[in-house]
Design a protein around this nucleic acid. Structure first.
Lengths: 182, 182
DNA sequence: CTTAACTGTCTATTATAATAGACGCTATGA
DNA sequence: TCATAGCGTCTATTATAATAGACAGTTAAG
């Protein structure tokens, strides 16, 4: 997010077909304030911005998440999935690396004994996946479990987590995380 | 979002193991400000909040999206994935159906000849997936492509789309969509 | 050409966010 | 016991967000 709150607000407001005064009335603020915000002459307080968005209505989270424009879809042959070499685990990204996405979908391959590293991972968002082949030890928030083909996991990524291939066979999974991690 | 920015910020800060002063230093604001924000004695301007979050670092969108309540994570054995019987396609949902999720992850099985129905699907959000087994014809925005094991797709769900198993073998894929569709 | 209702912008004033620095509290160590 | 260093909170001052109300431009009706 560019922090260009003004331009963004203006686009959103016009998308809903509202004038500054109309929105101001619904939001319980002055039209002048909306003018100033849209020109980026002030950085609104969170409470004011919330009041304004309530007049639309739109949630704060949606406002900051909203992406205005662009569409690069498509298909990806297996050899077109970009490899993200992260140590002993092979990560193949589904989708364009450049395009703005709301998720990261990965086709992951763990060699026997491979793992995500010593320290536990923590980051915002959620992630989940399905084991396609082999055996994978999944540790989340202190709890461990070994999963096989067809088994799955889903958790908030803020919980410390770690993955390890405990089988002697290669392990293959498909995972997704939101917001995108790559 | 409750607009209890203070409590939320405090929780996030502590989750990252930072003191008010430490975070203030990284963010380039005073520790006093962080104290005041966390007590909800002021509503920070968007620009200040961004500065603070940059010190963590965390995006504004993530901050407002992040849900800090409860913890219903877990592991799911294949037989625990709830089946969502949608016609001839078997959809197995990864994650609790009740819990708030930002994505829907599905383990899908298409019988030979099975498809998602006559009419094209369109809905907000994005979706993507990886073909695990068999052959699947994917149609998006007028364009069709037959994908095999290891191939993948990713597109904005607002584009009309449709899936069909064109092989004589069962087809198996793992997909994800955001926001959640189930 | 008026008149009226609308658009967004601007300025002077008031309310509030943000700073700098002091304060009290709880360790930890000499 | 007396530092010293960490923690979060508080107050007085300064910087900035927010208001009220005037202003100019545009469109449509009489």
């Amino acid at each position: 997010m560019s922090l260009d709150v003004g331009t963004h607000l203006k686009a959103v407001r016009q998308m809903y077909g509202l004038s500054q005064r109309e929105l101001a009335k619904r939001a319980g603020v002055t039209n002048g304030l909306i003018s100033l915000i849209e020109q980026n002459r002030v950085s609104p307080s969170v409470s004011s911005l919330k009041k304004v968005l309530d007049g639309i209505p739109m949630a704060l989270a949606d406002f900051f998440t909203l992406d205005l424009g662009g569409q690069p879809p498509v298909f990806f042959a297996r050899q077109d999935l970009s490899d993200i070499g992260t140590g002993s685990v092979e990560l193949r990204l589904v989708g364009s690396r450049l395009a703005k996405r709301s998720m990261t979908i990965l086709h992951e391959r763990y060699a026997p004994g491979a793992d995500t590293g010593e320290e536990m991972l923590t980051h915002p968002g959620e992630e989940g996946g399905v084991i396609v082949k082999g055996k994978l030890e999944v540790t989340v928030g202190g709890e461990s479990r070994t999963l096989g083909p067809g088994d799955a996991y889903y958790f908030k990524s803020s919980l410390p987590h770690r993955f390890r291939n405990v089988g002697r066979e290669e392990c293959e999974i498909v995972s997704a995380s939101s917001p995108p991690s790559f």
